[in-house]
Amino acid sequence: MSAPLLSLRGVCKSFGGVVANHDVSLSVPEGGIVGLIGPNGSGKSTIFNLICGTHPVDSGEIVFRGENITAKTTAEIARGGLVRAFQQTRVYKQMKCLDNMRISAPPQGSWFARPAEESAEEARRLLGFVGLAEKENWRAGELSFGQQKLLELAMALTAKPKLLLLDEPTAGINPTLINGVMARLRAVNEEFGVTLLVIEHNMRVIMNLARNIFCLARGEVLAEGAPAQIQNDKRVIDAYLGG
């Protein structure tokens, strides 16, 4: 088996006396869709913050594309191809959707040059992919919450990531639109070749989407396996899913 795209080995993180993550080891294979589930406060978002370099780890190491990224800064990690979308959707609200996209593209040439015309075409293509082609001249803050989430996804794709971390991509989205989001995430994975690591509370979504799932509880990995295995795991049912 080839080396995983991302792997965490024995990662620990405490905030004061509160242990957020203890000895977390997990791996994400290239091209896969991996789910991360667990009760509130089990340390899922902290894991994302550690992977992205938002918080330094206390111990353990994080390896991405064969390189140890444990001590790198957020921006360096992002430029290396590991991009996240936030739980509380974050877009540049006063900027036009098209400019949101253009500034998210990997920088080429001088910063003091105008953005290349191709970047606008690429931006329009991806806005079309998430169904926001008509809104390119709207300010991002004028979009609905669900549309902002889609814009954030498109922005992340513009950055041409290898691995995309998604923190609850369907939270707060109208149930009738959730299938659309799922279809798009599958397309992101299959057509764009982006590996996904997804935190999700909606069990129907994650069980359909992910091929492999890690369940966290109290900051530790409780179980790992295919969706069917996880759904029937006694420990997971006790700690999270309920009987």
């Binding site: 609200k93 500034i103 992340a156």
Partner: peptide
């Protein structure tokens, strides 16, 4: 608009 986001985007 959002400095943390900008940083997270590289």
């Amino acid at each position: 608009d959002d400095e943390d986001k900008a940083e997270a985007m590289g």
